[in-house]
Design a protein around this nucleic acid. Structure first.
Lengths: 265, 265
DNA sequence: GCAATAGTGTCTATGAGACACTATCGG
DNA sequence: CCGATAGTGTCTCATAGACACTATTGC
């Protein structure tokens, strides 16, 4: 395998001749979000090599030569978390939502060479403990607020996290914003919940992702009134504190009508 | 310049070593939309070479070795249409909206080799006549309905267009769906209008993009009542038929609150 | 005059948010 | 008993949509 880095300008390149092209590496990076202890958390891995050695980064890796982008993202997700991604809403046991987020390809985003990264967004329930190829403490869930507010408000704590490697802070920010807006008009918030969940658990997901407090009574009336959002799970009770709550599963609807509106008006 | 196509599986590849990677070509493809004669139209170019020779395709080209993805898309847009893209809402004269759409990288999407295409969406006013490097009739505006409905309802017409090359029909479909949903909650519909426009012209944009009829009175009350959407242009009249209409410019708001809701409930 | 588009007023149904109230558990 | 959470009813306000009505042009 011989690859010589393209450094000089290509002058005789036909606009549609792919046999003469600047070489790129293509990777997938993952923004894996979950809700833990009432906070929105992202999966980060510690880098073992330069550049950014020792810093936290989003999990990711190279796309293989015969692999689709979504397949590469699903493979990385399985390698890092054991989660099995499912797009077309199959009620698999350990399934997480996975979708393409955006692509980042600034020329200097990786100081070693030209890397274009197709970022994906995954939403997962709390259950799985992170594992990175057997290395336990090189992967962890970190609250997104701490990861993104690295230049404010953490000086006194000593637990001030370093900024994420590469442009991963921007990617994470874009992923979080996508999740925040998408649970408004889609049923994606159920991807943060286990297969069966209560209305209160779903409400705590919305509160954690949006960072607001919601009225439990209005929330209950709203989600149970939106057709196709929730279906009663037959099973009826569980304990979270007070009166037993009804258990639900995600309904078939993917788009919510009417949408769940984020307060802030 | 020596590049050997990666064909065998990489076995000794460190997960973060970008000096050993499968080689990819990275391109940008453009979904350029405009509204002409009350129909949503897309810019397509005729392919002069195999594969898909003679078929229509979305404009696009290779990303250069030292070029950002958005810069490559803006360059291609300028080459094909003469439009100057502006993201941060600068009121430039010939400015069009440009944003990243999605990335397509199925292994066999280009039969010649592995190409990953970062599709972008551009919205432009009607004015410009298409030009493709001086070759006049190799680029044209085509109604998106005709481009996407190639397998239905056109058999009697004789003007049945062939399907778009590569996976461009899917890319175009995704771009159209993005435009349709985004003009609901953002002020992007003004990107289809010239610098000064009337409420009626803006309404015809919504009607063409959504393919529905809207009540002119309610539409007028709604858009003029949404803060920051439209600002009166001082200049007051123009002729479109009946009573003179007030001229407006796009206001500073990018997100509409309340949103313009698409009928269909 | 008529036809066309621009723009305003008004009514009604619906939904969001505030909040009183009841239900059912663990202590 | 109390405190917690679950779930329902009701009131008020804002807004979408339907549509009558007026305003101002060209013909």
């Amino acid at each position: 395998m011989f690859i010589v880095r393209q450094t000089t300008k290509i002058t005789a390149m036909s606009p549609y001749d792919p046999s003469a092209y600047p070489p790129f590496a293509v990777t997938v990076d993952l923004v894996v979000l979950t809700v833990r202890r009432h906070a929105l958390c992202a999966l980060v891995v510690r880098r073992g090599e330069a550049p950014f050695q020792g810093r936290w980064a989003l999990p990711g890796g190279f796309v293989k030569g015969d692999e689709d982008l979504g397949a590469a993202a699903a493979r990385e997700l399985a390698e890092e978390t054991g989660l099995c991604a499912h797009d077309p809403a199959s009620p698999a046991a350990n399934g997480a939502h996975l979708e393409q987020l955006a692509t980042y390809g600034a020329p200097e985003r990786d100081p070693r060479m030209r890397v274009v990264s197709v970022a994906h967004l995954a939403l997962a329930p709390d259950l799985p403990a992170p594992r990175a190829g057997g290395d336990a403490n090189s992967a962890r869930w970190a609250p997104v607020d701490a990861l993104l507010d690295h230049d404010g408000g953490f000086g006194r704590d000593g637990e001030q996290p370093a900024p994420l490697a590469f442009d991963h802070a921007r990617i994470l920010g874009d992923g979080v914003e996508r999740a925040r807006s998408k649970i408004e008009y889609s049923s994606l918030a159920t991807a943060f919940c286990p297969a069966e969940f209560t209305v209160g658990e779903l409400r705590r997901v919305y509160e954690a992702v949006w960072g607001v407090a919601l009225d439990p009574r209005n929330f209950h009336r709203k989600v149970t009134g939106t057709p196709g959002f929730l279906v009663p799970s037959g099973g009826t009770t569980t304990r979270q504190g007070g009166r037993p709550a009804q258990l639900f599963r995600a309904g078939g609807a993917t788009v919510l009508n009417p949408p769940m509106l984020r307060p802030e008006v």
